[in-house]
Amino acid sequence: MFRTLASGSEKIEIYLDGKPVPVPAGISVAAAMLQLGALPTRLTPVKRSPRAPFCMMGVCFECLIEIDGLANQPACQVEVQSGMRVRRQCGAGELAS
């Protein structure tokens, strides 16, 4: 769906649903998910319908995801870090890690 114009950029490794994947450093978790084509990024708590990042500016909360054990993090507001554990949520996230 998306490609990067900065192809030579530095890569780091994150864990997506337990599997290591390389992503560009300095971008948001939501941008990384879109670049990886890892969609949907969650299933809703209400009807389990598939969702993905929508506004990219912290307003719509569609991109909620579990990051390093903490559920419901807005992926568009969090920068990827080396070794970060990102897990897609199915339904309501567990708030306690």
């Binding site: 900065a6 971008i27 941008a31 500016m57």
Partner: peptide, 20 residues
């Protein structure tokens, strides 16, 4: 998934150099 705002598209371009 696959429907976003134009603003989101522009933020991806500004912050992550990403294009469709």
């Amino acid at each position: 998934p696959g429907v976003m705002t134009a603003g989101a598209g522009q933020i991806l371009l500004k912050s992550a150099a990403m294009v469709p």
